[in-house]
Amino acid sequence: MFAPPPSSKRVTSSRSDVQVFSDNENGSSPNGSKWLLLLLLGAVLASGYIIWNSSKKIAPGLIETPDGEIVLSPEREAKRDRELEEIDNAIQYALVATIDGYYPCLSCPFGIKTIYLYKGNVWKYGVTRKGEAERYPGGNYGADNLLFLPMFEGTYSECLKREKTLIYNYPLLPEAIERQVILARPPGNKYDS
C-alpha cells in the first residue's frame, strides 16, 4: 500500500471550514517571498535606527518645544513643585490610643510584644510629608484603634527635630514613668527616629 503523492494543487478538506494549502496559488516557492520579506524588514529597521540615531534623544519627562528648546514636561514640573511643597509642609504627629486596651509594643524590652494603653496614651511619634495612599490605611499606622494627632506643622527638618525630641523625652512623661517597666521610647517607635 502506497500513500498517494502529495498534490501540488490546493486541496480542500471535506469540512468546508478547513482548507489545506501545499503551495501558494501561483505555484511560486514560498522561500523566495520569505527572504524578500526579511530583507524588507531589515531595511526598515536599519533606516529606523539611522533616523533615531541622527535625531536628538530626550529623556522621559522632557519635551522639545517647536522652537527647539528643551523644557520639563508639565507632569515633571508638577512633580517637582509637589515634592518641594512636601518639604515645606510636613506634619509632626502623635498616634494615641483611641480606647483602653492592648496594643503592639515595638520598643518593649525582655521580649514583651504587647502593652496596655489607656485612652489618650501615646503609641508613637512620627513625621509625614504627604497624605498616605489611603486616608485610614487599614491598620497601616501599625496598630488599630489609634488616633492621629498633628502636633506641629512646618518644614520637614523642623518636624524631624520635634519628633526626635519627643521620642527621647518620652520616658519622662507621667504615663511612661507610672509603668513598672519604663520604656526608652514610645511603644510604636521601634527606633529613635
Binding site: A94, T98, N145, L149, P150
Partner: peptide, 8 residues
C-alpha cells in the same frame, strides 16, 4: 474603625 486626624 472610627479614627481621626485632629489638631492635638
Amino acid at each position: 474603625f472610627i479614627s481621626g486626624r485632629i489638631w492635638h
